[in-house]
Design a protein around this nucleic acid. Structure first.
Lengths: 193, 193
DNA sequence: CAAGAGCGTTGATATTTATCAACGCTTTTT
DNA sequence: AAAAAGCGTTGATAAATATCAACGCTCTTG
């Protein structure tokens, strides 16, 4: 079960892991299963855990005053689920994170995670890379959002993330893109001609 | 001149800086002045430098096929100017970065910056914090963009970043928010009633 | 197996936002 | 001092997108 995680860390660090280090990591991460629709984090709570997805799919979203959900993040295998803002600032989260499919996770406390960053250099490297990439991805998405029409945004997204298109229903993709499901439906109809 | 930078690093790290470390940092950062409108980075080039703004204001933007500019980032004192994606991936940048006001920078090569991260623990801590915060800020902005109307987005922005409102003209703020200057003008007119 | 929920689609209409053009004011450049 | 460029505003109109309501299909679930 921890195999995937260790492999992931090795891939994202330059130096190899000693067996002591592996033990520390394994000790920090507990397996956990979530059934479809179960919460990993609920709005209003401080995010105390970080989850590495071994199998399954999840989503992070906010809910506005009208009760509409807005997807800020979609997760599949080898993604890290958490609300970084809440976890780092220790503030109540504005987001929910729940399982879209039945999901297997490896879960660590945020505090243990911070510990590992200090004690295991490869782990520190890996999280640094993660942080940088997350920023890059969200910067791209932001640029796409402020620069393009809904149609182009969908095209770009479909090109760059075909896995997501297959895995999540259209109305979630629409929400992720900041448009309604009806608009996305019409865009796709147009494009298919 | 390097005083601001060293103070900034101390504020964003837990351990103090030794004088050896200070020397390493000072050696890596060269003072540079940019006059209004001068480029720090031009689209198509790989971003080889990182700039710490000591005094002044800058902007990062893309230009679409119609020649319209889209502001992805605004910078003032104590901000770091660079295209992280280009600098890390060594890919040609899609963005321009230029000085909006006459600006004084401390500039380091990306490679020297990476070196410092390895050699000076406080510097590593500081950049990690930077990365995390950048992500959090852009995540918030993204959520605001997909969840809110233009009006709410402006309100939120004005509340959270009054310094930017004072410092940059409205048409740049509009572009940053992903709306036209006319729309922003009308939003403000409405709101002022 | 029947009932209901989830999903995508379509049509009619309303709302939001962009576009284009023009103007006045201020600041910068010549 | 005159000319030009930058900035914000306004009006008229067009385009993009949202909203509301309804329908058919598939998949769960009782």
């Amino acid at each position: 079960m921890h195999k995937n995680l260790l492999a992931y860390i090795r891939e994202h660090a330059t130096s190899p892991l000693t067996s002591d280090e592996e033990a520390l990591i394994v000790a920090a991460f507990q397996p956990k299963k979530l059934r479809k629709k179960q919460y990993f984090l609920e709005e209003g709570n401080v995010c105390k855990y970080v989850g590495f997805i071994v199998k399954g799919a999840m989503r992070q979203y906010s809910v506005d005053d009208k009760g509409a959900e807005h997807i800020v993040q979609l997760y599949i295998e080898n993604y890290w689920a958490s609300d970084r803002e809440s976890a780092l600032m220790l503030t109540p989260s504005r987001f929910n994170i729940d399982a879209w499919e039945n999901t297997e996770l490896l879960v660590a406390r945020v505090t243990d995670m911070l510990d590992l960053i200090e004690k295991v250099p490869s782990f520190g490297q890996m999280t640094r890379l993660m942080d940088q990439r997350s920023f890059i991805v969200s910067q791209r998405r932001l640029n796409s959002t402020i620069s393009n029409t809904a149609e182009k945004r969908y095209e770009e997204f479909a090109d760059n993330h075909p896995q997501f298109i297959q895995r999540f229903p259209q109305h979630l993709i629409a929400s992720f893109l900041g448009i309604t499901k009806e608009t996305l439906s019409r865009i796709r109809k147009q494009a298919s001609k």
